[in-house]
């Protein structure tokens, strides 16, 4: 198996570093899928393959893992032979968008970590305010939208629709039932 990072050996040489990077990433992902297929097959060995009444738990994972591995290797091979899709010239985001993506990602992770501890209202307020300030929304607008999106949404769901949402600890918002 060729080293996917070894772009220089590719049938079509990289046009500028960005294009080369995209191609390398493409091959890396294909390789990752191939490895996933192998891993699945490896795991499926521990599952019953066939039973008197048809396929067992391991039958489909074994085959699917194998097929995924073969397909991924074929994609990798085709790419090494010069048949890759038209990849975007610039694969990695520039600094600002990269930070924005990172913050968005982190904000959702924060939501997942905090929502059952700090309650929906506080968590969602923080997520919204951070995301909007990052997007350069005017602070006052951001504040209002964040309040609407946290307190407002929670109020509608909890009070009006009777839905359970994680409550704010210490009874901080118990006055409005949140």
């Amino acid at each position: 198996m060729a080293d996917p990072m070894d772009v220089q050996t590719a049938a079509h040489p990289p046009i500028g570093t960005a294009r080369g990077l995209a191609l390398a990433l493409f091959r890396l992902v294909a390789l990752a899928f191939a490895l996933l297929g192998l891993w699945v097959m490896w795991q499926a060995r521990d599952l019953v393959y066939y039973t008197p009444v048809g396929p067992g738990p391991g039958f489909f994972p074994m085959w699917l893992g194998g097929v995924l591995g073969l397909l991924s290797l074929a994609i990798l091979g085709a790419s090494l032979l010069g048949r890759s899709p038209a990849l975007p010239e610039r694969i990695l985001p520039e600094r600002t968008p990269a930070i924005q993506m990172g913050v968005t990602f982190a904000a959702i992770a924060f939501f997942a970590l905090a929502v059952e501890r700090a309650g929906f209202v506080i968590t969602m307020f923080l997520v919204l305010i951070v995301l909007m300030l990052m997007n350069r929304v005017r602070p006052l607008t951001a504040l209002l939208v964040a309040l609407g999106g946290s307190v407002g949404v929670a109020w509608v769901f909890v009070q009006w629709l009777g839905v359970f949402l994680p409550t704010t600890p210490f009874g901080l918002l118990s006055a409005i039932g949140l």
Binding site: T104, V127, L131, N135, V137
Partner: peptide
Amino acid sequence: ILNPLIIL
């Protein structure tokens, strides 16, 4: 504004 709301 729209994207944070979609995330919400």
